[in-house]
């Protein structure tokens, strides 16, 4: 059993026409979101996506888009309070 987080929110988009089926996304995804089917990548478990952006960054054909970031409430609250982008303050004080 693996932990499931909030459904139907992932910003992941796969453009099948740009995909050349290299399989990089299948390899880098830590949650098994992708699979290869008939030499193309397909999204098989979108709700498992944590939007880390590994697939997008490693797709040589720019077929994947996701609004990547870290799912950290503390960072988002920090960012809101300081008026900056999400910032966990790791380099100095706190978390991860």
């Amino acid at each position: 059993m693996f932990l499931k987080y909030i459904k139907n929110v992932s910003t992941l988009e796969l453009n099948a026409s740009s995909c050349r089926g290299c399989g990089m996304c299948v390899e880098v995804c830590p949650h098994g979101v992708f699979a290869l089917s008939r030499n193309k990548a397909v999204v098989v478990d979108k709700d498992a996506c944590m939007e880390c952006g590994a697939c997008m960054r490693n797709c040589p054909f720019e077929a994947i888009r996701v609004s990547a970031g870290v799912g950290c409430a503390a960072a988002m609250i920090n960012g809101k309070l300081k008026g900056t982008s999400p910032d966990c303050g790791c380099c100095g004080t706190g978390c991860c």
Binding site: V9, M50, E51, M76
Partner: peptide
């Protein structure tokens, strides 16, 4: 508990935003 989201390896920023 909400602050624990950052320490887990499966929470998406979109999900955290939604629950916040």
């Amino acid at each position: 508990a909400l602050n624990f989201t950052g320490a887990t390896p499966f929470t998406s920023p979109s999900g955290v935003k939604k629950e916040m």
